[in-house]
Amino acid sequence: MGLSDQEILHVARLARLRLTTAELPGIRRDLNRVLDYVSQLQALDLADIPPTMHVVNMEMPLRDDVVAPSLSVEEATKNAPQVEAGMFKVPRIVESEGGGDDG
């Protein structure tokens, strides 16, 4: 049971990648081979095993609340493909895209 084309296109959409119909079969084959290989993990009994999210056991170091110099607007935007009035320019945002929770 692997990923269908439909599911792959959904994932591609989440990742903001465009897939052509020509490359879809190859990608489906590669992804499903890997997913098939990793499915061996499902056989393990991991109920009591904690995950390793950080490999070193350490606590959060904290930074003092001190203002450090920012970049100049020129430096901050020098690599940007499109800049207007010191800001990054983006094309029309189609409304249904919405923003984040805090937008």
Binding site: V66, A68, S70
Partner: peptide, 17 residues
Amino acid sequence: CGCSTAFGSAPNSQTCP
């Protein structure tokens, strides 16, 4: 990061990598 949080400055003047 260390950028200032002051409100109302010129756009992108309070940014860093």
